[in-house]
Design a protein around this nucleic acid. Structure first.
Lengths: 138, 138
DNA sequence: TCTACAACCTCTAGTCACTAGAGCTTCAAG
DNA sequence: CTTGAAGCTCTAGTGACTAGAGGTTGTAGA
């Protein structure tokens, strides 16, 4: 049996975050000692590890709730889980595209200026004021 | 002179967002009609355009406040603005690296499963439960 | 067995950058 | 002069935590 602090150390999830996960129903309520402190078993450790991993991969709490739900119903098709993962992948790819475009423009802006001179003629500020220079959307 | 709605249409920034920007001091308080409605001139339009562009590039409100501050003090060196932009670029590049790693793992997870069978043997769920398979950090 | 104190508990409020809604007033076209 | 879209303020909600206050419990050492 682990205390919440031990669980935290083993998973790398902060103590208040564990309590928060329980509060929003992501983690089933832990058993308690007579003095009302939470105690976890190996199962609890594994569930939190799952959540941690999924959160690290950017899955929303909502998506993780759905995945855990699927785990608890082994009769249900795996297709749903795959759909959630693929949706997440699409999401990540969209963000990647956006970020790449931003990087390009920031390079243009940040490197276009030698850092000398005063801000009246600053290239950074001029670039931000004038959207015209931008290639592509945002 | 523009109303807040016209300003919104021209810049693509939603009306409540414009009011929010004013509230947090990002946009100087607009002049008002006798009936207390905001009226903007060309300067206001340009300032909001600047903010919009910077937000699109992911600059925080705090960073934008600093940039606007620099604009208002043309005697100050441009170096500070360049620093802010470079900091933002570093940030974007870090996010890019992280996202690329996530993409790789999501491909592994989402494509490793044919979507058939039940969730007991689902590769997505197994992968999320078991961190061991992961290459690299997260 | 006692004591000290780290770790636990609950609850509320704060973070960021908005967004939504209630309930009211003003502006402008017909 | 009427109508209704657009404006106003204020409060509260979003997601995923994080921080702090103020009180209680568990446990290691004396």
């Amino acid at each position: 049996m682990f205390s919440i602090g031990q669980l935290s150390k083993q998973t790398g999830v902060k103590v208040p975050t564990i309590r928060y996960y329980e509060q929003v129903g992501l983690l089933v309520s832990a058993g308690r000692t007579e003095g009302n402190q939470r105690r976890y078993d190996k199962g609890g450790l594994e569930r939190l590890g799952f959540i941690r991993h999924a959160r690290d991969l950017g899955f929303s709490i909502e998506a993780i709730t759905a995945l855990i739900d699927l785990q608890q119903h082994p009769d249900r098709s795996c297709q749903e889980a795959t759909l959630i993962a693929q949706h997440q992948l699409t999401d990540v790819r969209e963000k990647l595209l956006r970020l790449k475009a931003l990087e390009a423009e920031l390079v243009r802006i940040a490197d276009g200026c030698d850092g000398e001179g005063n801000s009246e003629e600053c290239y950074v500020l001029a670039s931000l004021a004038d959207h015209q220079h931008c290639r592509g959307e945002h």
